[in-house]
Design a protein around this nucleic acid. Structure first.
Lengths: 142, 142
DNA sequence: GCTATATAGTTTGATGTCAAACTATATGAT
DNA sequence: ATCATATAGTTTGACATCAAACTATATAGC
């Protein structure tokens, strides 16, 4: 159990940080200012499912529900999404993209592609598969 | 470029989160309450070097210098470290462990060991090496 | 049908974090 | 020596985040 075992954990933190900064920088370049990766995750999730309850979002992006309240409220303020109460179960609040929100899809796709291209530069398919396998194992340990 | 490529990035975030929670839970179990992993990183760094300037800490733990000011001030308040101005270059502030801070060393070592044992459970040495190699490559891409 | 419990969201308070502006000191160029 | 620039830290303001307390609604058991 040498030094490298600790290094991996530090690397993981640093990579995550780099990925976040990369994405935010690309968003700013494309004129999308004032939102962070968590907001992006919410918008991204809404490209796939046009309507999500607050709790769904909380699960998808792994953030506390109170955090999601704040994040979504900001997206509402910026005009990217709307909130609407479910008429059947009035406890539920659905979040959906506005036209302005939907316009982000091609931009997000291109940023996502660029980020992945950078991430996987000179990493072979075999290594990618190996990485996924090992990380899944590690994740399962907790 | 399938779904799994995005999964890896999400996994990385989630693993980091799990590791942090694990460490905080262990600290609380050992009676160390009210500090987070970043404070722990500072204390950990001070086990190896008995005296560190604020800027050194900022580099080691990859946090903004203003963040380090806040983190260290909290550690001072809790009695784990002291701050002292360098007499040669009075711009520099050195941080050092108090006796109370030094007492944490065996506890931190044991928590670190437990965390690593959990992390690497059923991950072979070969996989560990492979993981480190690939993560270094990825990190180098940013 | 009530009452208890579970679920969905929001509010509140605390904290870590960053960036930008600021203060203070050191160093380098002329 | 002076002045400009660089460096070390702190302060300030904004924000993401969480946990706990809270509100409101739905559901299940009696």
């Amino acid at each position: 159990m040498g030094m490298e075992t600790r290094d991996i954990i530090s690397l993981i933190s640093k990579i995550r940080e780099k990925v976040n900064r990369f994405i935010i920088a690309e968003m700013v370049k494309q004129g999308i200012d004032g939102i962070g990766t968590s907001h992006g995750d919410i918008i991204y999730a809404l490209f796939k499912k046009p309507k999500l309850a607050m709790a769904d979002i909380s699960n998808k992006i792994n953030k506390d529900k109170s955090t999601v309240t704040a994040l979504v409220d900001k997206l509402v303020r910026l005009g990217y999404v709307t909130k609407e109460r479910d008429s059947e179960d009035t406890r539920v609040v659905y979040v959906a993209l506005t036209p302005k929100g939907s316009e982000l899809e091609p931009i997000f796709e291109s940023i996502s592609k660029e980020m992945l291209d950078t991430f996987y530069l000179n990493v072979s398919d075999k290594e990618t598969a190996e990485l996924l396998k090992i990380l899944k194992k590690v994740y399962g340990n907790f």
